[in-house]
Design a protein around this nucleic acid. Structure first.
Length: 269
DNA sequence: AGCTCATGGCGAG
DNA sequence: TCGCCCTGAGCTG
């Protein structure tokens, strides 16, 4: 369910609910039992996100590293943890809160060096103040791959997923098929800046809204359905429907095993 | 009850 | 490029 904005808000929620307190850590499902034992009862220091990777810090210099993948989910709530239901890989508990993690691609305990190595593997994250977009630019401008594929590469744009990829290209009127080397500096800068705005907004709202305020009246009476991802978007999962701006049909195609949505007239060459 | 799909990413070939 | 891993929701019947 997550693109980077969700992981950032989850990091904040975990830090708020558990930060500074000794935390009971277990793995009701059992698959993370050994890892949980390494940090069970230790004071949880904080949590932070780098792209879609979440790192939870414990006072014994160990980190729980979580990547949700396509199916992973956190449930973070106040009160006493309910009776175990479903497959809970990791559970955090203190006197006031509990958190349950299901279905992650990665859930492991790392030392400090391993954590730094994991962070080094991802590129700049538009949500993070310390992100250096030049690391992405040098790779984009040298690449023959399409900008649509490059936006999904976590070594270039950490935290961007299929929705932000589609929407930022629509908003900037850039075809997803344009090779990276054909993306101008001005276009790259517009993409990066737009991602910082859209994704920061996503962290705050916990949903992806990309439709500009001036276009909202335009689309209000035309919304055909509410998708699970919530929010209002221009092209994502709108295959075959009319483009809100030019009226032609939104297209869908497979790009590297993921669905790509775009509006050809609005996003030329 | 069973099938399909999903906002990811990895390793084999 | 393909198959596979993780899980749950929303269909269909």
């Amino acid at each position: 369910m997550p693109e980077g904005h969700v992981v950032h808000s989850q990091a904040r929620a975990i830090a708020r609910a558990f930060g500074g307190k000794a935390t009971e850590v277990d793995s009701p499902q059992g698959r993370f039992a050994d890892g949980a034992a390494l940090v069970d009862g230790v004071r949880l220091v904080g949590a932070e996100a780098h792209g879609k990777h979440l790192f939870i810090a414990f006072a014994n210099d160990r980190w729980v590293h979580v990547h949700l993948g396509l199916f992973g989910k956190w449930r973070i709530a106040k009160g006493e943890a309910p009776a175990e239901q479903g497959l809970i890989r990791l559970r955090l508990r203190n006197a006031t809160h509990y958190a349950e993690l299901r279905g992650p691609t990665v859930c492991e305990v790392l030392g400090d060096d391993e954590r730094l190595a994991a962070i080094a593997r991802v590129g700049p994250d538009p949500i993070r103040a310390d992100a250096d977009p030049m690391r992405a630019w040098v790779k984009v401008t040298r690449s023959r791959s399409s900008i649509g594929a490059l936006l999904m590469d976590q070594r270039l744009f950490a935290g961007v997923g299929n929705i932000y990829r589609a929407e930022v290209l629509f908003r900037q009127n850039i075809s997803p098929y344009r090779p990276g080397a054909m993306v101008s500096w001005a276009d790259f800068e517009a993409i990066w800046t737009d991602l910082t705005v859209l994704m920061a907004d996503g962290v705050k709202r916990r949903r992806i809204d990309t439709v500009r305020p001036e276009h909202m009246p335009e689309i209000m009476g035309r919304l055909a359905r509410k998708d699970r991802h919530g929010g209002e978007v221009y092209v994502y999962r709108r295959e075959g429907m009319d483009c809100y701006l030019c009226g032609s049909a939104i297209r869908m195609a497979d790009m590297q095993a993921r669905k790509l949505y775009w509006c050809p007239p609005c996003q030329p060459g």
